[in-house]
Structure formats: structure tokens, C-alpha cells
């Protein structure tokens, strides 16, 4: 958000600016690189401008787009905001604009993935009744899924750990969740808390009986639930004792 502010304020001309995320691109010759620092004031200014000058819905789309795994996401957002500030709230629906097509495309991906994770996340009960789930999402879905579980299980202690980004959403019972980095030592500590859980076994029993053999259709199953989600799902972890261990 701050780099968007900086790019705008630099008056370099939109066509001369490209926004990129540090560490996710290769440096080019003849290009000047300017690092943006996080300044809270700038950050809120941009968010407020999006909400007021475009629309609340546009802010949701921008937020989702920012959580996408697309390398170009920052620039896509920037291009969209240029059009958004020009045309106002209706810009979001104007599919004639390339920027709108792009941002809707990546925001949809992040949104779909987070919706699927609402169902596919699997908690494992630890020794002290803490629920621990591990995921390896393509998009950065933690802040998109955590509010759902906060509302649903307000009195449980739970952690959702994004192994790829080493980020965790941590929810102490009765309080708000927060996002935190986990160190290897901390993850190790959590793994030590794992114990065998009969309900995991019972869930596999249920999962394996509920399918109808006469209608067996692995292609359809794969379509609805792609293989890469399955690594951390209890019902597909029969050989492994647990996806945490």
C-alpha cells in the first residue's frame, strides 16, 4: 500500500512505474529501484481512498488480489487503481479494461482457494486440547480464513499454520486471533504435543464407507479436490500417522 502511495506521489508518470515485491523478481538493467518503507499513515490513506473513491467492494477485491501468489500482483493492483480512481465505483465491473480483467482474475483465484480451505483445513487435537492445523496454500489465505474459524469456534484454542510462509493464525480461547511467525523450534514444540486421536481414525472409517462403489469416479474427485490439497487432510493421510509428524 505504501509503495502505491509513493508511486503516485513520485509523479513519475504511471507508464514509467512498475511495482514489484522484493525478493520475487529479477533485477533488470537500466531500471531504477526504489524501496518503499511501511508508514502507517500512507497505508491508511491509500485504503481510505480506495474505499471512498472506488468502493468497499473494490477494496475487498484489492485485498484478495494482494493475497494472491501471482508475482505481478502488486503491479496489477496498481494498474487497477489507476483506472479505479479515474472511473469510480463502476470500474470494477468494466471488463473492457485489461486492468479489471487481471485483478478480477487473481482476486477470484485467491478467493476460491480460501473458500475451499474453509472446508479442507483439518485440525488435529493436541495433548492439551489445542487444535492445530497445517496448510500449504498457494495464496496467502490465513487472514481470509481465520475470521471464519474465530467466529465458529470462539471457545477453542486453535492454530492454523501456513508451512510455506511460516505464518500462523493463533487463536486463544475467548480472544481475538493474531498472525505470527513461527520459528522451527516452536513448530517442533507443537509436533511433540501430537498424540493419537481416535476421531481421526473414525473419520477415515466414515470417509471410506460413504463413497458408492458403483459410481466410483476419481477424475471427478480430483476435479473437485485437487491432489495438492490432500497432503494435509486426515482422510488421505492413512499411511502417514499424521500430517504434522
Amino acid at each position: 500500500m505504501c509503495c502505491i502511495y509513493d508511486a503516485w506521489a513520485s509523479k513519475a508518470g504511471h507508464e514509467n512505474v512498475r511495482l514489484m515485491i522484493d525478493g520475487e523478481f529479477e533485477y533488470e538493467l537500466f531500471t531504477e529501484y526504489i524501496m518503499s518503507e511501511t508508514v502507517h499513515e500512507k497505508f491508511y490513506k491509500v485504503i481510505r481512498a480506495i474505499q471512498q473513491k472506488i468502493s468497499m467492494e473494490a477494496y475487498t477485491v484489492v485485498y484478495r488480489a494482494a493475497m494472491s501468489f501471482e508475482k505481478e500482483r502488486l503491479d496489477i493492483i496498481y494498474r487497477f487503481l489507476i483506472d479505479g480512481f479515474k472511473y469510480g465505483g463502476r470500474a470494477l465491473y468494466d471488463y473492457r479494461l485489461e486492468s479489471v480483467r487481471q485483478i478480477n482474475r487473481i482476486a477470484k483465484k485467491a478467493g476460491n482457494e480460501s473458500h475451499l480451505f474453509l472446508g479442507f483445513i483439518r485440525f488435529e487435537e493436541m495433548k492439551n486440547r489445542v487444535l492445530f492445523a497445517q496448510i500449504e496454500p498457494k495464496c496467502n489465505v490465513l487472514t481470509l480464513v481465520a475470521p471464519h474459524f474465530e467466529e465458529r469456534m470462539p471457545d477453542e484454542n486453535w492454530i492454523i499454520y501456513d508451512k510455506k510462509r511460516r505464518l500462523a493464525a493463533i487463536h486463544p480461547a475467548g480472544r481475538q486471533y493474531y498472525i505470527s511467525m513461527l520459528t522451527d523450534a516452536e513448530v517442533e514444540q507443537i509436533r511433540d504435543m501430537y498424540e493419537n486421536d481416535t476421531y481421526e481414525f473414525l473419520w477415515r472409517v466414515f470417509f471410506n464407507t460413504i463413497g458408492i462403489d458403483e459410481r466410483k469416479n476419481p477424475a471427478c474427485q480430483r476435479n473437485m479436490l485437487p491432489m495438492w490439497y490432500r497432503d494435509c487432510m486426515t482422510e488421505f493421510a492413512e499411511d502417514k500417522k499424521s500430517c504434522v509428524v
Binding site: 472446508g119 471464519h148 469456534m153 471457545d155 470417509f207
Partner: peptide
Amino acid sequence: KGASGSLGSCQASGICHTFASDGRCISLL
């Protein structure tokens, strides 16, 4: 909505939790 002191909430869109070998969604026990 969920509520403090209880477990659970419902979402109008419905949520699929997994898909059985026949490709059908499993959302309820």
C-alpha cells in the same frame, strides 16, 4: 453467526469439506 459459549456457525453458501471416491461432496456427517 457463531456465539460465545457454543460451537458452530452456518454459511449460506454451504461449505464442502471433502469429496468421496465417487466425486460427491461430503459436507455433513
